[in-house]
Write a protein that binds this DNA or RNA. Structure first.
Length: 962
RNA sequence: GCCCGGGUGGCGGAAUGGCAUACGCGGAGGACUUAAAAUCCUCUGUCCGAAAGGACUUGUGGGUUCGAGUCCCACCCCGGGCACCA
């Protein structure tokens, strides 16, 4: 066992003394900002999941440093906010005191990881020197019109006793404590993130982020193109405006539905004959939790606004108006046109309340864009559709059935003992006399639907299977004249068929609304729609919208960021409300009389020490009970005024921390404004040099939280001229989740692994190696206590080899070049597990190859250094090399030597392995053939057989086809 | 329901369309040892076979290809995200 604790202590000290992880922030030539999402500290300390993420990030940083970059790898604590406060509440401590305890413990643990952190630049979000600037950012948001206050239905966590942003509600539950979230109407501060919706979406194309995260953000932003269409309310001057993405279905809109909170309802109180009932429904809907709304799921509720009628602008029909809570107040206009034939929710609602359903679109059944529904086939009722493609003329055979006087591919069912495919072939033969069929494609679609023939509504529900054949030749067997007499056979041109899908334009299979089952949501061809009949949905959409007086718009699902929190442990929102000014309509901004931002020079608004900091649950922060805090003077008129007592969301703290790190030791810049110079929270020169961040690593769970807010903030800073980029992180990678023996680690299960005991028992390097070896970093892995022994053995062997006498060589062993290449590439791709496996392969060779020597070993140490920084450094020193290995150059490989001069030629017969021969790299087919014949087994296989074909892939394989 | 991942030995996991199971854990046997631990060596996908050898094998079923874990179609299962967004 190598003496890890002595070695680690020694180097930890030396590294700090020599500041090898502190780049020159002002003068660095090749800056590389390697950032890791900073942790929020609970006093329970770092858990092995954090360790996993931090170590993974550090390996990348160390690799970049050795590759010649000036790497900056800062660390800090996200210790302000609800997570830390909840923890303090739980253990009965005061967050302000607890912060200091946690800080000490966390930094001690972070030190022990052996990461190359730049300790001079650490920051804590609860430090007044930090949150002064968080508040400053709030003030700038306010000054630039991005912060506003509004009364609205908001998410409320009854357990955390605060409001939450939409992003913090996960499936109807509080992101922090898992309690069901309810809706409350409160006046709150918001950030206008929606202003950036389109930019947030468009920029995704430009950044190197995992597809998974981009998709999550895309969905969250939820852009939809549609139209606003007004429905006049009969006998009033009001128009109900709806947003729809499907104006092509407007002729099928048979009623309107408003959200319960729709403002029109109170305006039209006098016209609504059943207003009491309506009010009661609105009251009930407001009380429901998110969870109740979801749990009720499909069971729709609603009330008709009796006495009101609206006019469908397309059909001019009078249609009823309802309210229902399946319509969301905050999206679109809070009202929808209901098209029950083409929308699942409207369909259900119409079924329940017996409202008219009118189909106006028929989708093609075989359209690739509209894959059929799943279900179990009913073989007895299988209907087989046989389509035959002309081999040369690009035409398709369809069968004309006299029974139906319209083109339909309907054939019979399956006979006794016959497979569906056999039945199809038989059918084709009986109908056409064509025999030589080759199955091109089978569509075993087993959906339940009715068929619609273009001019007739027809047929019955069936299950369907479609076979698509190609004729091998055109010879027609005249065997069944009787059948062909009965049915005409016709070749239809396939001109319209696009390449993608051989049946995309088959004209006669059209899905029909099944009145008993469900809506037809696919797009298709419009009918029952006056002059628009026959157009496709895509063609008809905007024409119909225009016809009805609507206008095209884009809608986003994204809503503004609710920033206030009714909690104690956070930066007080730096705003002041003056009643006197408000009464006069005065204020800093016209739209919000009475409100003033705290002047920049007066920041920070310090969070006072409050003994009883527990959340109140009244909709106000505990600060509202501290007179000394909230009593102040109006910055404009000097009258008695009141401070805002809510604090800001913790995600605002983390939305800008990365900008602060490199400027911590420098002077803040000042920005010229119209009237004065404005101090900003960072140094422009340094910021220019170090941003955007080169590599950011963190958890994927922040896909639509931190990772969205931080992008929004950067865009705002850019627009205010504070920074010159708008995407903060060029490259982001999400680390995987560490589980234990197949199950999630959680405190309640008691299977949380703490890194400390393993570091104590085996050393930091061993833990690092094991963590990084157990699975691909981005995928996450399965921790098993027993598995660490592999890492222990590996490092012990390295240590032993380091103690042994190694031969001095002139040059590197040639086989090492391939390994250097592989490890270099694997680290770049974050494939740490395969890098380590290759290090193991190298070690095996160093131990067994007699020619391996000191030079090889030193290269091995360099390759090992990012993973096991302590041992690599120690052995580097004892090998007589200069301090520090971590500042040494990453080994280069010779391209010519990457692969050996010989290779193993694989000999296959009919694709099966029959032999291997060692051969020189450049041999041709003839030589390879000779070598293959030299193999007795191969010779046996080939003797007396005719070789039809030889496939020879140089440098790899020779395959005989017999 | 929709959108992402993923399914490979006893386990964690490797494999630019070309030797499936690298590397490691575990297991078996052996060496060293009074003994154990540690260490080192050999073997270790399944089935048939005494062996030589053969057959089978990457969730299931089809397809493309000289050749498929890898590409295409359909299905099943697991994990994650979103979820009445009109």
């Amino acid at each position: 066992m190598y003496p890890f604790s002595k070695i680690e202590k020694k180097w930890r000290k030396r590294w700090l003394e020599k500041a090898i992880y502190e780049p020159n922030l002002k003068k660095a030539k090749k800056p590389f900002y390697n950032l890791m999402m900073f942790p929020y500290p609970s006093a329970e300390g770092l858990h092995v999941g954090n360790t996993y993420a931090f170590v993974g990030s550090d390996i990348y940083g160390r690799f970049k440093r050795m590759s010649g970059h000036d790497v900056f790898e800062p660390i800090g604590l996200d210790g302000f906010g609800i997570h830390s406060e909840n923890y303090a509440l739980k253990i009965g401590a005061h967050p302000m005191k607890q912060a200091k305890v946690s800080e000490k413990n966390f930094y001690r643990q972070l030190q022990s990881l052996g990461n190359g952190f730049a300790w001079n630049e650490h920051l804590e979000t609860y430090d007044p020197d930090y949150y002064r600037w968080t508040q400053w950012i709030f003030v700038q948001m306010w000054r630039n019109g991005l912060a506003y206050r509004k009364k609205q239905l908001v998410n409320w966590c009854p357990s955390c006793k605060t409001v939450l942003s939409d992003e913090q509600v996960i499936s109807g539950e509080c992101e922090r404590c898992g309690t069901k979230v309810i809706k409350r109407e409160l006046e709150q501060w918001f950030f206008r993130i929606t202003k950036y919706a389109d930019r947030l979406l468009r920029n995704l194309e430009k950044i190197d982020w995992p597809e998974k995260i981009k998709i999550a953000q895309t969905n969250w932003i939820g852009k939809s193109e549609g139209a606003l269409i007004g429905f006049p309310v009969l006998e009033t001057e009001f128009k109900i405006e709806v947003f729809t993405t499907r104006p092509d279905t407007l002729f099928g809109a048979t009623y309107l539905v408003l959200a319960p909170e729709h403002p029109l309802i109170s305006n039209l109180e006098s016209k609504i004959s059943n207003f009491k009932e309506v009010e009661k429904y609105i009251g009930r809907a407001a009380k429901k939790t998110e969870e109740e709304r979801v749990a009720e799921g499909k069971e729709k509720t609603g009330v008709e606004l009796k006495g009101l009628k609206a006019i469908n602008p397309a059909t001019k029909e009078e249609i009823p108006v309802w309210i229902a809570d399946y319509v969301i107040g905050g999206y679109g206009t809070g009202a929808v046109m209901a098209v029950p034939a083409h929308d699942e929710r409207d369909f259900e609602f119409a079924k329940k309340f017996d409202l008219p359903i009118r189909q106006v679109v028929m989708p093609r059944l075989l359209d690739p864009a509209n894959p059929p529904r799943k279900g179990k086939p009913d073989t007895k009722r299988d209907i087989i559709h046989c389509l035959v493609k002309h081999p040369k003329e690009n035409k398709i055979i369809v069968l004309r059935s006299k029974k139906l006087d319209w083109l339909t591919p309907v054939t019979g069912g399956i006979e006794e003992g016959e497979s569906a495919l056999e039945a199809a072939k038989r059918e084709i033969y009986e109908e056409t006399g064509y025999k030589n069929l080759r199955l091109l494609k089978e569509y075993p679609w087993t959906f339940h639907a009715e068929f619609y023939a273009a001019h007739k509504d027809v047929n019955r529900a069936v299950h369907s299977r479609v076979f698509y054949f190609e004729l091998k030749n055109l010879e027609r067997d005249e065997i069944s004249p009787k059948e062909t007499e009965k049915h005409d056979v016709e070749w239809l041109p396939l001109a319209k068929l696009h390449d993608l899908h051989p049946m995309a334009e088959v004209p006669f299979l059209v899905k029909w609304l099944d009145q008993g089952e469900s809506a037809v949501v696919e797009e298709g061809v419009v009918f029952n729609s006056g002059k628009f009949d026959g157009l496709t949905s895509a063609e008809a959409k905007w024409d119909i919208a225009k016809f009805a007086g609507g206008k095209r718009t884009t809608n986003y699902r994204l809503r503004d960021w609710l920033i206030s929190r009714q909690r104690y442990w956070g930066p007080p929102i730096p705003m002041i409300y003056c009643e006197a000014c408000a009464a006069k309509g005065k204020g800093e901004r016209k739209d919000m009389p009475g409100w003033y931002a705290v002047k920049e020079k007066d920041l920070p608004v310090k969070l006072p020490m409050v003994k009883d900091f527990k959340p109140l649950g009244t909709g106000q922060s505990p600060l509202a009970t501290v007179k000394l805090f909230y009593e102040t003077k109006c910055p404009a008129c000097g009258a008695k005024a009141r401070r805002e007592t809510d604090v800001s969301d913790t995600f605002l703290d983390s939305a800008w921390y990365y900008l602060r790190y490199p400027s911590l030791g420098a002077k803040n810049s000042r920005l010229e404004t119209k009237n004065s110079k404005l101090e900003i929270p960072w140094n422009q020169e340094i910021t220019k040099k170090w941003f955007p961040v080169d590599m950011y690593i963190g958890g994927a769970e922040h896909a639509v939280l931190h990772l969205l807010y931080v992008r929004f903030a950067a865009m705002a800073f850019k627009d205010w001229g504070l920074i010159s980029f708008e995407e903060p992180f060029k490259k982001f990678r999400a680390h995987g989740l560490l589980i234990k023996e197949g199950r999630k680690m959680s405190k309640s299960k008691g299977n949380v692994v703490r890194p400390d005991e393993f570091i104590e028992k085996y050393g930091t390097d061993t833990l690092r190696i094991y963590l990084m070896f157990l699975a691909p970093f981005e995928q996450g892995g399965d921790w098993r206590d027993a598995g660490i022994i592999g890492a222990v053995r590996f490092l012990n062997r390295v240590w032993k080899l380091g103690q042994s006498r190694l031969v001095r060589q002139k040059s590197l062993s040639p086989w090492l070049h391939g390994s250097i290449k592989k490890i270099t590439e694997d680290i770049s791709a974050l494939h740490y597990n395969t890098s380590i496996s290759e290090l193991m392969v190298v070690l095996n060779k160093l131990e067994s190859e007699p020619a391996a020597g000191r030079k090889d070993f030193e290269v091995f140490l360099l390759l090992l250094a990012p993973f096991a920084p302590f041992m690599a450094e120690e052995l580097w020193e004892s090998s007589g090399r200069r301090f520090s290995i971590h500042k040494s150059s990453w080994p280069e490989y010779d391209k010519k030597l990457v692969s050996a001069p010989t290779f193993e030629l694989i000999v296959q017969i009919n694709g099966r392995l029959r032999g291997k021969v060692t051969a020189a790299k450049g041999i041709g087919e003839a030589e390879a053939k000779k070598l293959a014949y030299g193999q007795p087994a191969v010779k046996d296989y080939l003797s007396g057989k005719e070789i039809k074909k030889i496939i020879f892939i140089p440098g790899k394989i020779i395959n005989f086809v017999i």
